[in-house]
């Protein structure tokens, strides 16, 4: 009886685990949908910003701004790492942290000082284990980063960059391309890449004429748009990371649930076989005993 009972116990505990993974999958699915909606909304804002920049370019303004210029000095660099607060999401955290570590080593070679900003408990514990120290830690970004929260971080970094306290800002996060494609990426956020602003095809087609009047001047509009584009970009990074996390968790939990299903059916089969063998054994014993008596 001992073996059959042990098998049954194991089957029950796996059924319990399956319930948990299944629930986590459903939760991740719901959060993923919400996160995607937000990412799409943010995208429409960024697209409009890009359009204004395209209009500026058409007005014949050369796109130049202190935030776009490369810095000569290499004193201090900041690396912002976006990870999840929780695990159970497959290779999500590992991928970002691997990419971040590689960049971290690289930055340490070229810059006198490297500061780490880390979001997510997973990243914190990993990097602490590796012996890194943090300048700032955020754990308030879950599946729903708000612009307000991101703006606080972005504005602080922007101010520090403006006054020359830091010379470079890199962001390690998970880029969201589509539901079937996300990958860890380390991008340089400051100096801000002008490519995001000028890769518009339309702008080159009708260059030279702009129907717009710029108030108070094209230069002033540009001065305002670059920090805004930077903040929008940062917000996009946080949203991408949130969406990526939910997708990774969804897939990992789906696989875990399926695995649990396979284990349960395997265990049920073994259990039934063990039970049957036990019954046969008992019958044989009873028959044997009766025969011996007669």
């Amino acid at each position: 009886m001992a073996k059959a009972r042990a098998l049954d116990k194991r089957r029950k505990s796996i059924a319990g685990i399956r319930k948990i993974t299944r629930t986590m999958e459903l939760v991740a699915t719901a959060q993923f949908r919400r996160a995607t909606e937000r990412a799409v909304a943010a995208d429409s804002y960024s697209k409009r910003i890009v359009r204004v920049v395209a209009d500026l370019a058409r007005a014949g303004l050369e796109i130049s701004h202190p935030l776009l210029d490369k810095r000569e000095s290499s004193r201090k660099a900041v690396l912002l790492v976006l990870t999840a607060n929780r695990g159970m999401c497959g290779g999500y955290n590992g991928g970002v942290l691997r990419a971040a570590l590689a960049r971290l080593e690289e930055l340490r070679r070229t810059y006198d000082e490297v500061e780490l900003y880390v979001s997510g408990k997973r990243g914190v514990s990993f990097l602490k284990y590796r012996g890194w120290e943090f300048a700032k830690v955020f754990t308030n970004f879950e599946h729903k980063p708000t612009f307000e929260e991101v703006d606080e971080v972005a504005s602080e970094l922007l101010d520090r960059y403006r006054v020359g306290e830091i010379d470079r800002l890199d962001v390690a996060y998970t880029k969201f391309v589509s539901i079937s494609k996300q990958y860890p990426l380390v991008e340089t956020a400051l100096p801000f890449a002008a490519s995001t602003a000028t890769d518009d095809e339309e702008s080159s087609e009708n260059a030279g004429e702009s129907p717009f009047e710029f108030l108070p001047s094209p230069r002033s509009v540009l001065e305002e748009i670059v920090p805004n584009a930077f903040k929008a970009k940062m917000f996009q990074c946080f949203l991408d990371a949130a969406v990526g996390e939910q997708i990774a968790r969804m897939i990992a939990m789906k696989a875990a649930t399926e695995n649990a299903d396979a284990m349960i059916s395997n265990l049920t089969r073994t259990y039934n076989r063990a039970r049957q063998a036990q019954i046969t054994n008992e019958i044989v014993e009873v028959v044997g005993g009766a025969n011996a008596l007669s």
Binding site: V52, D55, L56, P211, F212, E213, F214, L215, P216, S220, V221, E223, E224
Partner: peptide, 17 residues
């Protein structure tokens, strides 16, 4: 940036800070 600006129907194209 430097004061209020009003926009009515059929306004000419403008980008304002």
């Amino acid at each position: 940036y430097d004061g209020e600006y009003a926009i009515g129907p059929g306004h000419s194209p403008v980008v304002g800070r």
